[in-house]
Amino acid sequence: MLNIVLFGPPGAGKGTQSQFLIEKFGLIHLSTGDIFRRNIKEGTELGKLAQSYMNQGKLVPDEVTINMLKAELEKYPDSKGFIFDGFPRTQAQAKALDALLKEKNTSITRMIALEVPEEELKRRLADRAVTSGRLDDADPEVIQKRIDVYMDETLPVKSYYENQNKYCGINGVGAIEEVTKRLLDEINTLI
């Protein structure tokens, strides 16, 4: 089973790149952001709770996120593998994900980080607010808060996977196709 954590700050291109990897390798894309947005759109209690944190640029609490992800994993018992997009965001989540995957006799194959400078991230997020209507990308203060939360709270997850020799950083700047090629080159070394 091929299980990839696609890692990087908001606006790095994780969602865009995930689509290519899904098609190429037959993986299931699990984006906590998409799962939260679906719950928000459907007005579930989880969605309302997630929205309150997202509107402030904060992370949704681990317990809520992990339970939600477990339910999603169970929908795909015969999967060839998963792309985890936007998860794990803390070392506690990484440990919980390892435990969850161990129950399923699998593990994370590789964390691949899309590395993008902060000014480029801000530009991409502002553009995305216009093209996709995502309100969480429209406010420069919320964008900065999301980037700051990533740097302070999420980036330390990198060391968790480095310690397991499962981390790989790639340049996330350039044409979409160039970034895709870099990702494919890395994943092809794993299969």
Score class of each variant (00 low, 15 high):
31 S>R: 02
32 T>N: 10
32 T>A: 10
32 T>I: 07
33 G>H: 02
33 G>R: 02
34 D>V: 11
38 R>M: 09
38 R>G: 13
38 R>W: 06
39 N>Y: 05
39 N>F: 05
41 K>W: 11
42 E>C: 07
44 T>M: 02
45 E>Q: 12
45 E>R: 03
46 L>G: 11
46 L>H: 07
47 G>K: 01
47 G>F: 01
49 L>T: 15
49 L>A: 12
51 Q>T: 10
51 Q>A: 15
52 S>A: 14
52 S>P: 10
52 S>H: 11
53 Y>F: 09
54 M>Y: 08
54 M>K: 00
54 M>H: 06
55 N>K: 08
55 N>L: 09
55 N>I: 05
55 N>V: 08
56 Q>Y: 07
56 Q>L: 09
57 G>V: 02
59 L>M: 03
59 L>K: 00
60 V>K: 04
61 P>W: 03
61 P>I: 05
61 P>G: 06
62 D>C: 08
62 D>E: 14
63 E>K: 14
64 V>E: 15
64 V>T: 14
66 I>H: 02
66 I>T: 09
67 N>S: 14
68 M>V: 13
69 L>W: 06
69 L>A: 09
71 A>T: 14
71 A>E: 15
73 L>P: 15
74 E>D: 15
74 E>A: 15
74 E>P: 12
75 K>C: 11
75 K>H: 12
75 K>S: 13
76 Y>L: 12
77 P>V: 05
77 P>G: 06
77 P>H: 04
78 D>K: 03
78 D>V: 01
79 S>N: 08
79 S>F: 08
81 G>H: 04
81 G>F: 05
82 F>T: 08
83 I>V: 07
83 I>Y: 04
84 F>L: 11
84 F>A: 05
84 F>K: 03
85 D>F: 04
85 D>V: 04
85 D>R: 00
86 G>F: 01
86 G>H: 05
86 G>L: 00
87 F>E: 03
87 F>Y: 08
88 P>I: 02
88 P>T: 04
89 R>K: 03
89 R>H: 05
90 T>W: 03
90 T>R: 06
91 Q>I: 13
92 A>I: 14
92 A>Y: 12
94 A>R: 00
94 A>G: 00
94 A>V: 01
94 A>H: 00
94 A>S: 01
95 K>T: 14
95 K>H: 11
96 A>F: 06
97 L>C: 10
97 L>K: 03
98 D>C: 00
98 D>L: 00
98 D>F: 00
100 L>Q: 13
100 L>D: 13
101 L>C: 06
101 L>S: 09
104 K>T: 15
104 K>M: 14
104 K>V: 12
104 K>G: 12
105 N>I: 05
105 N>Q: 11
105 N>H: 10
105 N>L: 07
107 S>C: 13
107 S>R: 09
108 I>A: 04
108 I>V: 14
108 I>C: 08
109 T>F: 06
109 T>V: 10
110 R>T: 09
110 R>Y: 07
110 R>P: 11
111 M>A: 08
111 M>L: 11
111 M>Y: 02
112 I>E: 01
112 I>C: 00
112 I>F: 01
113 A>K: 10
113 A>Y: 07
113 A>P: 07
114 L>D: 01
115 E>G: 09
115 E>S: 12
116 V>I: 04
117 P>V: 10
118 E>H: 12
118 E>L: 10
119 E>T: 15
119 E>N: 13
124 R>A: 03
124 R>I: 01
124 R>N: 02
125 L>I: 04
126 A>N: 03
